Simulated assay, not measured.
Amino acid sequence: MGIRDELGKDLAAQAGPGGLQTVSATVIDVTADGLVNLTMRGATVYGVACADSYRNRRAGDTVAVRRGAIPVVLWRLGADPGDTDEDTIKALAQEIALDAQVVRAARWGTTEPAGAGWQGPMTLYMRTTSDGQVELYGQLTVQTEPPPPPTPPRTPSPVTVSATSSGSWRGGRPDDYASNPMQGDWTGSGNRRGAWFYGSQIADACAGKTVASMKVQFTRARGSGSNSKRPLHVYLHGYTAPPSGQLALGAGPEELLQLSVGATGTATLPASWRAALASGSARGLAIYASGRSDYMAVTDGRITITFS
Rank of each mutant, 00 (worst) to 15 (best):
I96E: 06
I96S: 06
I96G: 09
A97Y: 02
L98N: 12
L98H: 13
L98S: 09
D99A: 13
D99E: 11
D99M: 15
D99W: 08
Q101P: 03
Q101M: 10
Q101K: 06
Q101S: 10
V103Y: 04
V103E: 07
V103P: 02
R104I: 06
R104M: 08
R104Q: 07
A105T: 11
A105K: 13
A105F: 01
A105L: 06
A105V: 07
A106I: 15
A106P: 03
A106W: 14
R107F: 10
W108A: 08
W108P: 00
W108Y: 02
W108R: 06
W108G: 08
G109I: 08
G109N: 10
T110N: 03
T111A: 12
E112P: 00
E112W: 02
E112C: 01
P113Y: 00
P113A: 00
P113D: 00
A114F: 09
A114M: 09
A114S: 14
G115R: 02
G115D: 02
A116R: 03
G117I: 04
G117V: 06
G117C: 06
G117Y: 10
W118H: 11
W118E: 11
Q119V: 03
Q119A: 07
Q119M: 10
G120T: 02
P121S: 11
P121R: 05
P121M: 09
P121Y: 15
P121N: 10
M122K: 12
M122H: 13
M122Y: 14
M122A: 15
M122D: 12
T123W: 11
T123V: 14
T123M: 10
L124D: 05
L124I: 04
Y125F: 14
Y125E: 07
M126K: 08
M126W: 11
M126E: 09
R127I: 08
R127A: 15
T128Q: 15
T129P: 01
T129D: 15
T129S: 14
S130L: 11
S130M: 08
D131K: 12
D131Y: 05
D131S: 15
G132D: 12
Q133C: 03
Q133V: 01
Q133D: 04
V134S: 02
V134M: 01
V134R: 00
V134T: 11
E135S: 06
E135D: 12
E135V: 13
E135G: 05
E135T: 11
L136V: 15
L136I: 15
L136D: 11
L136Y: 15
L136P: 08
Y137M: 00
Y137P: 00
Y137A: 01
Y137F: 05
G138R: 04
